[in-house]
């Protein structure tokens, strides 16, 4: 490889700096191009637009449940009876695997809102329809591996590690909730 003449030695530092910054700059360029290519796999604008959904509860009678789709998953909304609310509140946290009070899990005690996906391996528990098996604690029962959930969607028996997830939601009015 040809060598710089001696008189040019002083310029070596300058020369290296120029060359290194050129390649560094090219590297920065290549790295910033990577981001759009990665980010395109994140949820698109139309997918994000469906990330929240509004549910009208005015026609949901006491003791009835509805299932709505939210982010591709079922969400259970149940209008609980006074008896169910009572049972959910009375139970001692000592007997629970994942202790949470009922108050922590509802914003209006009449309505319980749950992501209908068993925390064990992702099956959809039964208990939404009147004829369904509801398990020993009267809430929901996962048919895959036998997890029993109570009226507050808390795990009471079976392999599931945690309570049914409560999605983030808020009441826009007395009867309309916005999930997500």
């Amino acid at each position: 490889m040809p060598k710089n003449s001696k008189s040019k030695k002083n310029n070596d530092g300058k020369r290296d700096f120029l060359i290194i910054s050129t390649y560094a700059m090219a590297g920065i360029g290549a790295a910033s191009v990577a981001w759009p290519l990665i980010d395109q796999m994140n949820p698109a604008a139309d997918t994000l637009a469906l990330a929240s959904t509004e549910v009208d509860l005015s026609s949901l009678e006491e003791g009835q449940s509805i299932t709505v789709t939210w982010r591709g998953k079922p969400v259970f909304v149940r209008h609980r009876t006074p008896e169910e609310i009572k049972l959910a509140k009375e139970v001692s946290l000592d007997e629970m695997r994942h202790p949470e009070t009922d108050e922590e899990r509802v914003s209006n005690e009449k309505f319980i809102v749950l992501v209908g996906v068993c925390t064990h391996l992702g099956c959809v528990p039964l208990g939404q329809k009147s004829g369904d098996v509801k398990g020993q604690y009267g809430g929901w029962f996962c048919p895959c591996h036998g997890s029993h959930y109570d009226h507050s969607g808390r795990i009471r028996k079976g392999p599931a590690p945690t309570n049914l997830e409560v999605p983030s939601y808020k009441f826009l009015s007395d009867n309309i909730i916005k999930i997500g």
Partner: peptide, 24 residues
């Protein structure tokens, strides 16, 4: 703007690297 800067930098870096060859 980035590409103009890169073009200028790489042009001078190229001239630097090639200088000994061109001198021969």
């Amino acid at each position: 703007l980035f590409l103009l800067l890169l073009t200028a930098l790489s042009y001078f870096a190229m001239k630097q690297i090639w200088a000994p060859i061109k001198e021969q």
